[in-house]
Design a protein around this nucleic acid. Structure first.
Lengths: 237, 237
DNA sequence: ACAGCCGATTGACTCAGATCAAATTTGAGC
DNA sequence: GCTCAAATTTGATCTGAGTCAATCGGCTGT
């Protein structure tokens, strides 16, 4: 959306001190390969609300999320939006067959990515089947998540959607760094609504209802899970 | 669901006369490799309504659809069903990270698959990066379709869902074999409803409405697109 | 501290699609 | 062709979530 907040770090970085070193695509590379790989990527920062790439843009780069949260979404011609996922550190973005991105991505809060130009990256993969295998693993994981989300969108009630979202989001954050029942929600209510196929009002009302039931507490910038068991029961998975 | 309709062909088959030779995973193999690959797969037939594999089953095989249509779905504990896709000839099924299938698959009408035991297939891939690349391509294509379907499920009206489904289904069939405006629908209304996140009644009513508007004609086992342009307008993509 | 703004919440009312309940059509087996 | 069961269509009614419309905070900048 806004521009000019993008910052590219002055010179090459070192993968050694990279936060996602073990989790991301790069986990498939050995020390020697990593040394070479390092030259392909450059760290780029995006400010809150900035668009990293847009649907239908020609794909010129792939992205490895290092820090922050991004919303990935598709728009209908009349402006209706469906968020197809939130990207967190370790996620790899930009793969497609058409040569164009098939969704848009923008930063929610400050984001750092490791950006790879498409051509050299593709060349690098050529003779590194382990890297390809790793990328394939990530794609298969995404696909599984996508199918779960289809069930949520097509067959769950508003209450179930919200409860399932809170649990799923917490789980993803826990996988990154230990945190307990305090769940930060950096995205807006509108983002949550567009992710769950609901309106902002319904999301807000559901949060309020959960709070009145003593199941969660709405905190600045997130929620606190007071009764995770009840939330799980609501999610009815 | 029912059992005992499964038939395994008595002996090895030849990839040469395989209908999906050029489209499926095998398109990435050269003649010599294909000769070896041939021994890994066996053709298996399934009768209408039979389950090929179920969600949560340990994955022992991968499947390449040769003939027929399959519904791929997930169930909630209370029985609600979401169909996450329909598989057609050329589709490759069974990839997952957990070692268990993450959806169920059953035959809609008679189906023939090329079944590969997981271990030998995985071994075969090891030193065939082109095959891995092909599998990755198929996964990326699926992912793109999955995201489009999320938009449909989360943000489209019943009319738009049905119109989009008819166009998308026709397009997939056209890609297989030339056919014009007659669109066969081998799946039941309930299947369509569970794919679109609707009820059977809404699907039926929407079909009837389209027919009364002279946009489609409901035919035995399918529909005829009388006014494709109007349907596209309804889909509002 | 205060004004202005933007996101979030709350309330009143509406409606698209679900649910409940019959017909009606189709088709598989005899 | 005839029978019965299943699938589909149609109708009447209901309701969960959407829409429209105020507030209500909580930051930002002055």
């Amino acid at each position: 959306m806004k521009a000019s907040l993008v910052t590219i770090e002055p010179n090459g970085h070192f993968c050694d001190d990279c936060a996602v070193r073990g989790a991301a695509v790069c986990s498939s590379l050995d020390a020697a390969e990593l040394r070479e790989f390092e030259h392909l990527g450059r760290r780029v920062h995006f400010g809150s609300g900035e668009t990293v790439f847009s649907e239908e843009d020609i794909t010129t780069s792939f992205y490895n999320v290092l820090e922050g949260v991004m919303r990935l979404y598709k728009l209908l011609p009349d402006g209706r939006r469906q968020i197809v996922g939130f990207a967190l550190p370790g996620d790899f973005l930009g793969m497609n067959l058409s040569g164009r991105h098939n969704f848009s991505a923008d930063a929610i809060g400050a984001v750092t990515v490791c950006q790879f130009a498409k051509a050299p990256f593709s060349r690098f993969i050529e003779d590194r089947p382990q890297l390809l295998r790793r990328i394939n693993e990530l794609a298969i994981r995404e696909l599984s998540q996508a199918r779960n989300h289809m069930v949520l969108l097509g067959r769950r009630s508003a209450d179930e959607k919200v409860a399932t979202f809170l649990l799923g989001w917490r789980e993803r954050l826990v996988a990154l760094k230990a945190l307990s029942d305090m769940v930060p929600l950096p995205m807006s209510r509108q983002d949550i609504a567009d992710y769950l196929g609901l309106t902002i009002e319904t999301v807000s009302r559901t949060f309020t209802k959960l709070e009145r039931q003593g199941v969660i507490e709405i905190i600045q910038g997130g929620i606190s899970l007071l009764d995770p068991a009840r939330v799980e029961a609501m999610a009815a998975a």
